[in-house]
Design a protein around this nucleic acid. Structure first.
Length: 151
DNA sequence: GCCAACGTTGGC
DNA sequence: GCCAACGTTGGC
C-alpha cells in the first residue's frame, strides 16, 4: 500500500466538500507525471493527505482514501468542461481519474510552514520550492508521522 | 531535438 | 495581484 498527497485549491474543492460528497472522482488532472502516478501506482486502498493550496494557511487539512483504481476521466470529452481536451480520443483516453473518499478532517490543519520546519518531515516533496505537482507520493514514515500527530 | 515563448501554478 | 518556477507548445 502506498501513500500520497492530493492537492486541491481550498476554495475550489475542499476537505469539507469531500466530507459532504463522501466520495468524488478526482478529475481534471492534466499533468503527465500526476496522471502516471494515478494510472500506474495508485491502488484502491491507498491513503492520501488532503492538501489545500491557495488557502490560509496552505497545508494538510485531512485524510482521504483511494477507493477506485484509475479509469478514463470523462471531463476530457466534455466540450463544456474547463478540462476538455480536443486531442484525446474516446478509443484512447489520454487522462484518467481515481475515486477518492473522505476519511477525516484534522481539527487544525498542518500548515506548510510547520511541514517545512519539522525535521521529521525532511524530504517531503511538498517542501521543495516550486513543487507544482498536484499528486505526490508520500513516504510511509511521513504519512504516519503526520496522521499520528493529529490523533 | 533544441529552445524561446507562452500559459499555469501556487506561495506570499 | 504579483511573480518565480515550472510544464507545454511549436517553429525551426
Amino acid at each position: 500500500m502506498r501513500y500520497w498527497l492530493l492537492k486541491s485549491e481550498g476554495d475550489c474543492y475542499s476537505i469539507d466538500d469531500l466530507k459532504q460528497d463522501k466520495t468524488t472522482a478526482w478529475t481534471g488532472i492534466r499533468n503527465y507525471q500526476a496522471r502516471n502516478f494515478m494510472r500506474d501506482d495508485m491502488k484502491k486502498g491507498d491513503m492520501a493527505l488532503f492538501y489545500h493550496s491557495s488557502s490560509t494557511p496552505t497545508g494538510i487539512y485531512g485524510i482521504a482514501k483511494i477507493t477506485g483504481d484509475a479509469r478514463a476521466d470523462e471531463t476530457q470529452f466534455d466540450t463544456k468542461d474547463d478540462h476538455y481536451d480536443p486531442s484525446s480520443k474516446k478509443t484512447d483516453p489520454r487522462w484518467v481519474c481515481v475515486d477518492v473518499s473522505f476519511v477525516k478532517k484534522f481539527k487544525e490543519p498542518v500548515s506548510l510552514e510547520e511541514i517545512k520546519h519539522d525535521p521529521s518531515l525532511e524530504g517531503m516533496m511538498v517542501r521543495q520550492q516550486g513543487s507544482r505537482l498536484s499528486i505526490q507520493p508520500v513516504e510511509e514514515k511521513h504519512f504516519k508521522y503526520i496522521t499520528e500527530a493529529m490523533e
